[in-house]
């Protein structure tokens, strides 16, 4: 394979360069890459000119009818806008009332009433298919199997096994994790499962067919199932994917905790 030393070395060098290029381009989050920019600079003046001519030729006869339609549409939208604004003001009032009532019942979202043990993340999974973390507190510090683990922003997971000085935690983004949750405004219950292809989102399934899923809504644990206590913030709804029948639809929930940068966690002691 590498009989000729010079060509063998060249082959290895080329492969290393190709690997670095693949890694850079596959992890590039910005929409347009450098080469796309250059290509666009060459092509866009010509394209702009042709599009201008096309619009001139085909657009003129639609111009006057469009103006009438647009005026009607505009009036309708203004009316709708003012209606929505009044209902939004009503919603704000109800929201503040709700917050006050919640405080009266002592159901605050801060975790002051739970006894917690704090720990650090010391190890992560090196596989691509599971997401387990290891924390530096164990049975010597009072950690037991099944305890909930939270971060400063929301739910992290639950303890699956304990040694004297460490504990393994299955995070909620692991594919074998299912969290029973409720949407905080409509109180409909859903199940949030971890996905293989994303470390930042969960898939919220089993949404009731008559439920109204609002984008940006906050998702909390429901306490059903006995695994996680009630009221812990999980994340926010990013988008809803509708399907042909209402049974199959699911929502993408962005987790409140950033699992890539997670360092310190709290283990909730009393359940």
């Amino acid at each position: 394979m590498y009989k000729n030393k010079k060509s063998g070395f060249l082959g290895v060098l080329v492969t290393i360069i190709v690997l670095i290029i693949i890694v850079i381009f596959s992890n590039n989050d910005s929409g347009v890459s450098f080469f796309e920019n250059i290509a666009n600079k060459v092509v866009s003046p010509i394209q702009n000119g042709l599009t201008f001519i096309k619009n001139k030729v085909s657009g003129n006869e639609n111009f006057f009818t469009n103006v009438k339609d647009l005026k009607e549409q505009n009036e309708e939208l203004l009316k709708k806008n003012s209606e929505l604004e009044t209902s939004l003001r009503e919603l704000e009032n109800i929201k503040t009332e709700n917050e006050q009532l919640k405080e009266y019942l002592n159901l605050t979202e801060k975790y002051g009433e739970y006894k917690t043990i704090s720990g650090y993340v010391i190890n992560r999974d090196i596989s691509n298919y599971s997401r387990t973390i290891v924390i530096n507190i164990g049975s010597n510090d009072g950690v037991e199997k099944g305890m909930t683990v939270i971060g400063d922003k929301g739910l992290v997971g639950h303890v699956v096994s304990v040694t004297e000085t460490t504990a393994k935690v299955q995070t909620i983004i692991d594919t074998s994790s299912s969290v029973s949750a409720i949407m905080s405004t409509t109180k409909d219950s859903i199940v949030c499962k971890g996905e293989l292809d994303s470390d930042k989102t969960l898939r919220a399934m089993y949404i009731p067919t008559d439920a109204n899923v609002i984008q940006g809504d906050s998702i909390e644990t429901s306490g059903i199932g006995g695994l996680y206590p009630k009221g812990i913030h999980i994340g926010t709804v990013q988008k809803v994917v509708s399907t042909q029948n209402m049974i199959d639809r699911y929502a993408v929930v962005e987790t409140a905790v950033n699992f890539e940068k997670l360092t310190s966690v709290l283990v909730i002691k009393n359940n």
Binding site: G11, T15, V18, E195, L196
Partner: peptide, 25 residues
């Protein structure tokens, strides 16, 4: 766990490709 065949195949293909590149290097 939840089975998602498409995501698994995609991740496995990329991982195999990466392993091949590393073994050639």
């Amino acid at each position: 766990s939840n089975i998602n065949i498409l995501a698994f195949v995609k991740i496995l293909a990329i991982e195999t490709l990466y392993n091949i590149i590393l073994s050639i290097i």
